[in-house]
Computed example of a mutant assay.
Amino acid sequence: MNTATASEIERLGIPAAALPHHVAIIMDGNGRWAASRNLDRSEGHKAGARRTPPIVESASRLGIEAMTLYSFSTENWARAEAEVGVLMNLYTEYLVSQRPLLTDNNVRFRHLGQRDGLPARVLDELDRNVELTADNTGLTLHLALNYGSRAEITAAVRSIAADAASGELTTAEVDEALISSRLGTAGSPDPDLLIRTSGEMRISNYLLWQISYAELYVTDTYWPDFTPEHFHEALRDFAGRQRRFGREQSE
């Protein structure tokens, strides 16, 4: 453990062993944050983009193994064309501007979601970040962009079915581990903690397979107001829970 990580954990006030291995976040509330300030929705998205780096850096310094950020769902294409255009421009700028953070914090970047439909400029910057950080060994950061869990599971099933049809595997070999290995988060542990900002009490087609036993933490705070201190409070709450995985509570 490096000095920065030890210092961060000490400030957090919980044992390192009590931290989650993988934190997933539904970054919600940008539009409502803007509306509450009589601002255009685009300003909310810009504010939300500025909020992400401190959270990623904090997770990295704490030694958390993986983080997945739900940024743009497959359903979000139904939003107004102008708003989608603003978001795609923001992604292009964000992916470039955050390279020093990824490099300085030894973060490995991965794209989670479908490539089809994303503008070429966004795909280019996604691929560049994946390439530049491929050898990093710290936090694995999945950016869920053009992502839907049902589509992800469907693609995994199609991949397995194709291998079965070609004789590369038998139906007896199809188990949970095989399905997990065909998902976009393969190689990372399943999320232990799912955080949703803005108070909405739903999953929104996010990591449906992977969050089977994740602890849920919902806060009314909008994403642009979600600080590292809010993140740390979620981690403290997680550390205080007794995880039973379907077992009866021990006496």
Rank of each mutant, 00 (worst) to 15 (best):
L102A: 02
V157L: 13
A239D: 12
G240F: 07
Y217N: 05
P20A: 08
E125S: 10
R108Q: 14
G138A: 05
N146M: 05
H142T: 02
A186D: 10
E57C: 09
F238R: 06
F238V: 11
D163K: 14
D225V: 07
D237S: 15
A156V: 09
T68V: 05
A120Q: 12
P54S: 08
E83D: 12
R202G: 10
R115P: 00
W33G: 11
N105C: 09
R196C: 02
N136M: 05
E152L: 12
V107D: 03
R247W: 09
G148C: 12
N146P: 11
Q114P: 00
R115W: 08
D124P: 02
G44M: 12
T154E: 14
A172F: 04
W33N: 12
D175E: 05
I26W: 01
L118R: 05
A214N: 09
T137E: 14
T133S: 14
D135W: 01
T185R: 04
Y206E: 04
W33A: 15
A239Y: 10
L102C: 02
A239H: 10
D40A: 15
D28F: 05
I211D: 03
Q210E: 15
G113H: 09
E233D: 15
V122L: 06
P53M: 08
M67Y: 00
E215L: 04
P15D: 09
T197I: 04
R158C: 03
L123P: 01
Y91H: 08
H111L: 13
M88K: 04
A59L: 15
P20G: 08
A151G: 12
S198C: 04
R32H: 11
E233N: 13
V84L: 04
Y222H: 14
G199Q: 05
A156F: 07
R79N: 06
I25Q: 11
W33D: 08
A17E: 15
I64A: 01
M88P: 02
T3E: 14
E200W: 03
V23I: 15
Q242E: 15
D135Q: 14
D163C: 11
T5K: 04
I9R: 14
T133M: 06
S36L: 15
L207Q: 04
P54K: 11
V130G: 09
I25P: 11
E152T: 10
N89Y: 00
V157N: 04
A164T: 13
A80C: 00
E251P: 14
L90H: 05
H111V: 13
G29Q: 07
A49G: 02
R99Q: 13
D237A: 15
Q210P: 01
G85P: 00
L101R: 01
T103V: 04
A151V: 08
V23H: 06
E215K: 07
L69V: 01
Y94L: 02
A156S: 13
I153S: 10
E176M: 09
G44S: 13
L194C: 03
L145D: 06
F72N: 00
F231K: 00
P119M: 02
R128N: 14
